[in-house]
Design a protein around this nucleic acid. Structure first.
Lengths: 199, 199
DNA sequence: GTCTATATCTCGATAGAC
DNA sequence: GTCTATCGAGATATAGAC
């Protein structure tokens, strides 16, 4: 059974993804979580920023689980990248262009106004980069190159989310996904070449 | 001389870029523009959303001017892409990681809550894509490929802005810029190859 | 732990004098 | 066109009964 505390964090995460941090009021959060304002401050004495930080970390952990979920069953990393963008596009359409990245809106809103929340977002992004790097290393790439690809994939995805939500169109996601997958394929091929020539 | 109306739009643009649409109150906007609330509603009877739409379009026009400003003097398009990301990183550091994309924060905030503002953002993104497409066409690429590269460049830039502001680090911008420039170089080379083989 | 009531502030928006 | 005063709603946060 889900506790009141869990529901508050989950509802916050959902609202932040759809409308951002500032527009999500504590009364709205409490109401949608079937909780009272008093309970909210009982669990989060630090108020909105404390609840916000925890919602960001929870979103990060949940969304980060998609990385192994998509990469592990895929035949190769380039196919996994294609699956990742295709899945993101599908989910975006299914949710009427509401559910893209759970923390990007918050990250942009608070980066210059709340250092605590900014750091929480930065830690989540870094955890995603680390998870992506692992998969590219497992595919045979050296650590540095793998990290570059992970960052390239995440930046392409985040940027495509911005354009796709604004245009209510998945074009940007499709193109960014294909460009990223091609870059991964080319990088793998180049690396294998170097491996062979150095033997 | 700048009119009260101009100052209101300019201040709105600046505040939106740093802290987003929702967090920027009309009183703060009026105060920083040395104007009164009454004047604001005199020029923008539609209130915040009318002022917001105009601020988005103004930001879009201003930032869009960077595309010819960076691409026209560059020796080639790949170098222009590198210059663009390097310039963005430099400006971000100079402004203490505040001034990245002028409309991305607003786009994510309002995409699911205000159709008018969402459309204004979508139109700006489309105008940037069109301007970028022109430059890649001028470099010798067919329209479709040129548009893909323009979208790829913009998504990479937008995503890198999100990560860079959150991390207070330009790593994502540097990597996204290099990956994008490489993709542009590879695409140009491939196209020239096809051109030759079809002669 | 839960709930209600409320304090204080700021929001967007309006009215009307000048 | 400019300015002040103010409205009603909603914001975050707190106090205290149960």
């Amino acid at each position: 059974m889900q506790t009141t505390r869990d529901r508050l964090v989950e509802v916050s995460s959902d609202l932040f993804r759809r409308q951002g941090y500032v527009a999500s009021g504590l009364k709205q959060i409490a109401a949608e979580a079937d909780a009272q304002i008093g309970s909210l401050y009982h669990f989060f004495p630090g108020g909105k920023s404390e609840l916000g930080a925890e919602a960001i970390r929870r979103s990060g952990a949940m969304y980060g689980m998609l990385i192994p979920a998509v990469f592990d069953p895929a035949p190769d990393v380039a196919a996994a990248v294609r699956d990742f963008f295709a899945g993101a596009a599908e989910h975006l359409v299914e949710t009427n262009y509401a559910d893209a990245c759970p923390i990007a809106t918050v990250a942009l809103e608070v980066s210059s106004t709340s250092d605590g929340l900014r750091r929480a977002c930065a830690e989540v992004f870094e955890s995603w980069i680390a998870a992506g790097t692992e998969r590219f290393v497992a595919a045979g790439l050296p650590e540095g190159i793998a990290r570059q690809l992970a960052i390239g994939m995440l930046t392409a995805l985040e940027g495509a989310f911005v354009l796709a939500r604004a245009a209510r169109d998945t074009e940007a996601l499709r193109i960014a996904g294909e460009l990223t997958a091609s870059t991964v394929e080319r990088t793998l091929a180049e690396h294998l070449e170097h491996e062979q020539s150095s033997r």
